[in-house]
């Protein structure tokens, strides 16, 4: 392709690139800079060195959000790696009506987190369906405080995340399962391997890279959890905000009343480094196990 003027590619790129730079690269650089200042959200601010980061070390609210977020990752990631894989195996075989089931299992993915949150808060409220059934079957004396106890709220939010993510990762796994050669599975069957052994020794090693991908995506998604906790608690993150997550706290500190943009930026940098570290860690873990 000769004779093209040098600026032609840039004309094609310009609009998208301008948006990426103005609304991602610049805010990111700004976040990094602000994290070393005492800027308020209204403006101003002077350079304060690493003061914000030192303050983080002794900020109980911040550590609470970090603990909650880590717990979220620790529970949600294994669930989202394993359950959608089992589900994909279940819907892989082309039996009658399977297309319908696949589509239906995907439908929670399409709903917004707010809608999911409202539906689940109705299910889990004190006089909601779950509590009515638990009491009706005499499994609980009083209403279980799914939404008003900080720990239970966090676990309810996790359950909702898993519920909403199942279908998405199921589709991701289906693509991987389709690539498992039929001949290998048939050979194993001829050798007398049952369904479970075929899955463990033939399918599993082949979908491993996809499991790593899913683990990474789920871990990063969980690190950014916000809407689940927010909508299930009507914006309060539980009594005293004790179910707060990192993003919840960033928003509260940076954009709430008396917003401290500088301090919230330091937290944001921690979040960024955390998600970066997570994806590196998952990849590392995988390559080490593969060598072993």
């Amino acid at each position: 392709m000769t004779g093209r003027r040098w600026y032609v590619p840039w004309l094609f790129l310009l609009p998208a690139l301008a948006i990426a730079v103005c609304f991602f690269i610049v805010p990111f650089a700004n976040t990094a800079v602000l994290s070393f200042t005492d800027a308020s959200t209204l403006g101003g601010g002077t350079f304060t060195g690493t003061h914000n980061y030192a303050r983080l070390l002794h900020d109980e609210q911040f550590w609470q959000s970090v603990r909650n977020t880590l717990l979220y990752i620790a529970v949600v990631v294994p669930c989202l790696v394993v359950l959608p894989l089992l589900l994909a195996v279940l819907v892989q075989k082309r039996i009658a009506g399977i297309g319908f089931f696949r589509a239906v299992f995907y439908s929670p993915v399409v709903a917004s987190m707010v809608v999911a949150g409202l539906i689940w808060s109705w299910l889990l409220s004190d006089d909601g369906l779950v509590n009515s059934v638990l009491r009706g079957l005499h499994l609980a004396a009083g209403p279980v405080p799914f939404l008003t106890d900080a720990h239970l709220l966090l676990f309810s939010a996790m359950a909702m995340t898993v519920w909403k993510g199942l279908g998405y990762y199921m589709v991701v796994y289906l693509a991987a399962l389709a690539n498992v050669p039929r001949s290998l599975l048939e050979a194993a069957e001829v050798d007398g391997a049952g369904a479970v052994r075929r899955f463990r020794h033939v399918t599993l090693p082949l979908v491993r890279p996809t499991m790593v991908l899913v683990a990474t995506l789920a871990a990063i998604g969980s690190a950014k959890v916000f809407a689940e906790v927010y909508t299930l608690s009507d914006g309060s993150a539980g009594p005293g905000g004790e179910a707060r997550t990192l993003v919840y706290t960033i928003r509260e500190v940076g954009l709430g009343l008396g917003g401290e943009a500088g301090y919230a930026s330091a937290m944001s940098i921690v979040l960024f480094l955390g998600t970066l570290g997570l994806s590196v860690a998952v990849t590392r873990l995988n390559s080490r196990e593969e060598r072993a």
């Binding site: 805010p27 960033i250 954009l255 943009a261 930026s265 979040l271 998600t275 970066l276």
Partner: peptide, 17 residues
């Protein structure tokens, strides 16, 4: 980079921009 940087980590600055 825009895919790697979580939006949540830049939202305060995004608001300022």
């Amino acid at each position: 980079a825009t895919m790697i940087i979580p939006f949540e980590s830049i939202m305060v600055s995004e608001f300022l921009v």
